[in-house]
Design a protein around this nucleic acid. Structure first.
Lengths: 176, 176
DNA sequence: CATCGCATGTAATAGGTTACATGATTAT
DNA sequence: ATAATCATGTAACCTATTACATGCGATG
């Protein structure tokens, strides 16, 4: 049940409406960490509010409700964040596809590795540009920004994926 | 619906029983790519067999059924593997935890980054040992092994995570 | 002959996806 | 006025988790 903690964390970082959160999920968060459609976000917000882990701090036009994490919510978030990593419960489609490569014949395998290397290389380019842009507008002494951390993380992850794919291509070529 | 493709791929790589697959899911596959409990594996195997994407190739003691991927199954697997990566649908608890760091105060944040860096460093050590062992027993010209590819991938991923956490620690220290 | 691991399953519940739905406000 | 976007929801269906359950075969 990570969705509730994602919401708790995002609302602790910055009070937002369900609609705001929905948009955040379509950005960095949905790309690398966690995705949820609005049809899950709204019910979960209502449940969290019922349990007093979040609360309405503002109401706007069109029934807009801005939530923030309560003290109880922050405690629950902190508890969850410090929980040790659970092993052996991965669920990552991209990684799965890389693993299943070995069930293809060599030609298909090379083609797919090439595709993965190219895809990751493109992501590296894109994220490098994002990082340059973010760093240009940085004021010294500011608090660490979610977006900057996320971009750096994505960058390093894609570099690793790209390098792995190139390594694997070499390996397939060598074993002919 | 990645589970069916995970099964299709594993059975294409090597014919196995549901019990064999269950064990594979608790190893590399479940650690990095995809996890499923036996209560999902068996019903899905039955569904795949009904659709003639896999078939029983052997029966053993205690009702053991060994399945293999059919030609139709291989086609479906290939189609899925070559599908372009879907963006913005991530679901990765570890990465989520890294992102939500920024909602903690600086002290907690440093402690958690330290924890993540240590955890990844331990994984790097573990996987380096695995890689050394696998390479020692390698015959030249053998077909690329699932385990070796997986270990290398995990190794590079954890190196990237560790380096990111160390980078983030530096950054938090600098912003004080 | 007891215990451990093999091997598969059902049922209840929780969580996630997709399709459908509605109304308010802002910009053109 | 009209379209686009804001803002939230329900319902049906599918997928996943957890608890419970059973019997066979090998090993000591």
């Amino acid at each position: 049940m990570s969705l509730r903690h994602a919401l708790l964390g995002m609302l602790a970082y910055e009070p937002s409406s369900g609609y705001d959160l929905k948009k955040a999920f379509t950005r960095e968060l949905g790309e690398y960490a966690w995705h949820a459609p609005h049809t899950r976000i709204y019910p979960e917000l209502n449940a969290l509010a019922d349990e007093h882990l979040i609360e309405v701090v503002d109401e706007g036009a069109r029934g807009r409700r801005v939530y923030a994490t309560t003290d109880a919510g922050r405690e629950e978030l902190r508890r969850w964040l410090f929980l040790p990593t659970e092993h052996g419960k991965a669920r990552n489609t991209d990684t799965l596809k890389l693993f299943l490569l070995t069930s293809l014949d060599s030609e298909d395998m090379r083609a797919l590795l090439r595709q993965h290397a190219d895809e990751s290389a493109r992501e590296v380019e894109k994220l490098t540009a994002v990082v340059v842009e973010l760093d240009a507008g940085l004021k010294p002494g500011e608090r660490p920004q979610l977006g900057r951390m996320a971009a750096e993380f994505g960058l390093r992850l894609h570099q690793a994926r790209r390098d792995w794919a190139l390594w694997a291509l070499d390996r397939v070529a060598a074993s002919r």
